[in-house]
């Protein structure tokens, strides 16, 4: 199971080598997410329309290793943008992937950019 998690490491903007063209802006719901396939990775991408920002993170919830975070509800925890897993409502910061419900697992996050209505996700490999 743990090898699933090893595939996902947080990527900083300055470490991006590949901007992967994922889909168009219209493919994502307002203030919600959808899942993008990149090689053997599953990436959850969220259009946080209220903040006019986009976020990406691993689709796998580190709690029970299921590919479901893209179906989670987004919102904020005292100002921190977050996603709640649909299985057990574990919540994670979309900014840095940290766990907001007090467990000791976190998620990997990735940079997103929008150009000409196309959504790109940044990977270092």
């Amino acid at each position: 199971m743990e090898q699933i998690l090893e595939q996902y490491t947080s990527t900083k903007l300055e470490d991006v080598k590949i901007w992967f063209k994922a889909a168009t802006v219209q493919d994502f719901p307002f203030d919600g997410g959808a899942c993008v396939k990149y090689k053997n990775k599953q990436i959850a991408v969220f259009n946080f329309a209220r903040l006019n920002k986009w976020y990406a993170c691993q689709n796998v919830c580190p709690h029970k290793m299921e590919m479901v975070l893209s179906r989670g509800m987004i919102g904020d925890d005292k100002g921190t943008p977050k996603v709640a897993c649909p299985l057990h409502k574990k919540t994670f910061s979309l900014e840095d992937g940290s766990n907001l419900t007090g467990e000791d697992f976190k998620i990997a996050t990735y940079p997103v950019k929008i150009e000409d209505e196309i959504v790109y996700i940044g990977f270092s490999e």
């Binding site: 719901p29 509800m73 987004i74 919102g75 904020d76 925890d77 005292k78 943008p81 977050k82 709640a84």
Partner: peptide, 28 residues
Amino acid sequence: GHGCELCKPLVASLMATINADTANKEYA
């Protein structure tokens, strides 16, 4: 703020009662 997994479904449920919306109306 921007809502959360507590208030969003709650408002969705109230809209369903008050406006007779189905869950397809504002699915996010």
